[in-house]
Design a binder for these strands. Structure first.
Ligand SMILES: [Mn+2]
Ligand SMILES: [Mn+2]
Ligand SMILES: [Zn+2]
Ligand SMILES: [Zn+2]
Lengths: 159, 159
DNA sequence: GACTTAAGTGATTATAATAAGCATCCTGTG
DNA sequence: CACAGGATGCTTATTATAATCACTTAAGTC
């Protein structure tokens, strides 16, 4: 939050209540919300914000390096992440939820030689894909229906 | 290609020349093209395809598990990948080009314990981000302009 | 190889997400 | 406390992608 205000000032970007709220919202939650979700949440406390300002602000914050975007795979829209510490993500292939996890090992992976002839690596990010405990629990109840009607998810098969 | 035809038959999907061409195109190149790019390329050999068929076919192939999508980060659109072998990606933060690389180590990373309470991991995928040799070369020429006008890229800062 | 039929295609029309334009408003500054 | 330029919200465009539908064609059946 300190950091947020300082960077904004240095960049000559004004500290408006909208920006404060939007940043607060992204930073508050560990999930990685998309623009629409942030809009819904921020509107509860500030009913006048426009979706437009949400988008402008989010990308402004990305450009300022205050937040990041998550590579939204498949048919998903962009997700935002205020966690700038080096970290990695677990993505549930059923429900799409994305959780942070940490690993010093992953932060500094020994890169294969083949990469040398491609480019200079600045950072590595690991995406672990699988089924979250919630979804696994639900699956245990809904027995072995072969044609599971679950329309739930669309981001399977995404690298 | 064999595999492609077999899976289509098993799924009751017809083998049309369009599908053949579209799959061929995705499988032919190591880059990870988006729908529009595939459209342009396929049209050269088959000028009558519609962009619509491109989209329908690509997502069909994804649903059949014959190709994958790449987590298109930032403001990018979805990219497609016919390489189903376990592999990883180098992404250039300047030009956005995405190259495959292989690493047995990365295929089977030792997962931190913290992941246990989140979910069961089925696969890990490493994204190495940095500057590709091409872009590094170009940067070497264009001297030390502090305000580099480069509109080039928009997918920096993407996890 | 002709017959049949459901699936596939292309053209057109719709959605959905995101961006631009502009008049008004408000933050930061003197 | 007045000012000026950036920021907001509304409305209107883009852009990517999906749905409709009439026509075509792949792939079994005889
Ligand atoms: Mn995160
Ligand atoms: Mn690949
Ligand atoms: Zn889940
Ligand atoms: Zn590059």
């Amino acid at each position: 939050m300190e950091h947020f205000q300082r960077v904004c000032r240095e960049a000559g970007a004004k500290l408006t209540p909208q920006r404060l709220e939007i940043f607060r919202e992204v930073a508050a939650t560990g999930d990685h919300p998309d623009a629409e979700t942030i809009y819904r949440r921020v509107r509860k406390r500030m009913p006048t914000v426009s979706l437009d300002t949400i988008y402008r602000t989010l990308w402004l914050l990305v450009d300022l390096g205050i937040i990041q975007t998550l590579g939204a795979g498949g048919r998903e829209r962009a997700r935002f992440d205020a966690n700038l510490d080096p970290h990695h993500h677990f993505v549930c292939v059923q429900c799409g939820s994305t959780r942070d996890f940490y690993s010093k090992d992953f932060d500094a992976l020994a890169l294969p030689d083949s990469l040398r002839e491609i480019g200079r690596v600045e950072a590595t990010h690991v995406e672990a894909r699988g089924v979250c405990l919630d979804c696994a629990g639900k699956a245990a109840k809904a027995p072995p229906g072969p044609k599971s009607k679950s329309k739930s998810n669309t981001n399977t098969r995404t690298v």
